[in-house]
Design a protein around this nucleic acid. Structure first.
Length: 425
DNA sequence: TCTGGGGTCCTAGGACCC
DNA sequence: TCTGGGGTCCTAGGACCC
């Protein structure tokens, strides 16, 4: 391969693999991991896939099936998966200085090796090292563009023993694209696949044969980039240093349906607290707050959903100010008489403090500002050392919390339990 | 009687990803 | 009883300005 090669490294059934690392008895058995609230299936072992369990299936509908087939079921444990993800990424870093951590379980690496044999050798080494150092099995797809590397990775998973697939020869590429459904192409979702089918296109190869203008008009500029990449022309850049996020969300579905405004307010306060922690962790301030609430659209009950937004007078990372704004929005959109399923907060117009214009307030209340910063810092510190919500705002309620989500089958926090952390810094 | 047109900014909605 | 959560980008269309 003459041009630089892109490797797509994808962890196999990642959440299931994380559970297995710390519970080897799960090896060879059907295992699933459920979404927040134990709602639906978001990860399946190969054995679970073989039983016909689909991605996104509601767990309650499969409960009996899980029991009769001995499927081991886990609530999602993001503290564990996030930590394992970081370990995998640290291993991958050693193989290329040019790397994009695309998602919790996928990374793109640029490999500048001219020789095909060298590339395959390196891919084998990546796979073996990640497996040995973290216990997580991965597959590697190799190609000239990110989109083709995703295709190669898919082939590595489905059709190889080695877990490695190089997709470089043009006849080979054509052959594989002719067998690839449009909705299985990275960047083409269900909606656009249906649209293209109605226009007579069915496979990835069909798409590569359309004129650029037509693709641009039909699928917007992003679809055009996808099509060019399928042709082997790089059009989607590596994002090695992702820019600061522009928004940040915290929302949950409730364990039971909620009708009381007071309970919604408690839940919202808790979510804002969490959002504030994320905000400070990233060193950002929010310029505006949005709140939304919704009933359960799967039920036949009366439906209501609404949202509202408020700008903050000056960008801030001070949780109480954000909570105040959020509660004002909630009170303006709340309607009684509905069974609510969900409430959430979005922090918008995020900025780095150093990069925004100073206001008169900034010059004015420096002492006050310092106190507020110290307060948030102290809370974050305690909660980091002793566990989330060790210190929390009274607004999130002192009594029982009917809005809490269900997590009935949670594994232990094997890697991040606070008891393992040093108490003194 | 006859009342422009082009540029910019913002937002909502829709699509995608894992 | 029970159907996730957290992001990004693009476009069309309206508001506004000169």
């Amino acid at each position: 391969m003459t041009a630089p090669c892109i490797a797509m490294v994808d962890c196999n059934n990642f959440y299931v693999s994380c559970e297995r690392v710390f519970n080897p008895a799960l090896e060879g058995r059907p295992v699933v991991v459920l979404s927040n609230n134990d709602g639906c299936v978001i990860a399946r072992s190969n054995e679970a896939k073989a039983l016909g369990i689909g991605m996104g299936e509601p767990a309650f509908r499969r409960a009996a099936f899980f029991k009769t087939h001995g499927v081991r079921v886990f609530s999602s444990n993001y503290a564990l998966y996030g930590d394992m993800s970081a370990r995998v990424q640290r291993v991958l870093e050693q193989f290329s200085p040019e790397m994009e951590n695309y998602s919790i379980d996928e990374s793109f690496l640029v490999l500048r090796h001219a020789d095909t044999r060298e590339l395959l050798c390196l891919a084998r080494k990546i796979r073996a090292t990640v497996g040995q150092w973290t216990g997580i099995p991965v597959c590697v797809g190799l190609a000239r563009t990110k989109t083709l590397a995703k295709v190669a990775n898919r082939l590595a998973k489905k059709h190889t023993q080695s877990g490695i697939r190089l997709l470089d020869d043009s006849r080979d590429i054509r052959h594989e694209l002719a067998r690839l459904d449009l909705e299985d192409v990275w960047g083409i979702g269900g909606r656009n696949a249906r649209k293209l089918r109605a226009l007579g296109l069915h496979t990835a190869l069909d798409l590569t044969r359309q004129p650029r203008d037509w693709v641009r008009r039909t699928l917007t500029v992003r679809g055009l980039h996808t099509m060019l990449e399928l042709r082997g022309i790089p059009a989607i850049d590596m994002e090695e240093n992702p820019p600061d996020a522009k928004s940040l969300t915290c929302s949950r579905s409730f364990g039971t349906r909620i009708t009381k405004q007071a309970h919604l307010e408690e839940a919202l306060c808790a979510y804002v607290q969490r959002a504030g922690e994320k905000l400070r962790q990233r060193g950002l301030e929010a310029g505006a707050v949005q709140v939304f609430l919704a009933t359960n659209r799967h039920m036949h009950d009366p439906q209501y959903a609404n949202s509202g937004c408020l700008p903050l007078s000056t960008p801030t990372d001070f949780t109480p100010d954000i909570q105040e704004a959020a509660l004002r929005i909630l009170r303006s959109i709340f309607r009684s008489g509905y069974k609510y399923q969900k409430v959430g907060v979005l922090l918008l117009d995020l900025v780095r403090p150093g990069q925004r214009q100073l206001t008169f307030q900034d010059m004015d209340d420096t002492e006050e500002t310092a106190h507020r910063r110290q307060l948030m810092h102290a809370m974050d510190d305690v909660n980091q050392r002793f566990g989330r919500n060790t210190l929390r705002f009274a607004g999130s309620g002192l009594g029982p919390k009917p809005w809490h989500m269900r997590r009935e089958a949670l594994s232990q926090r094997f890697t991040t339990s606070w008891a393992e952390l040093p108490v003194v810094r």
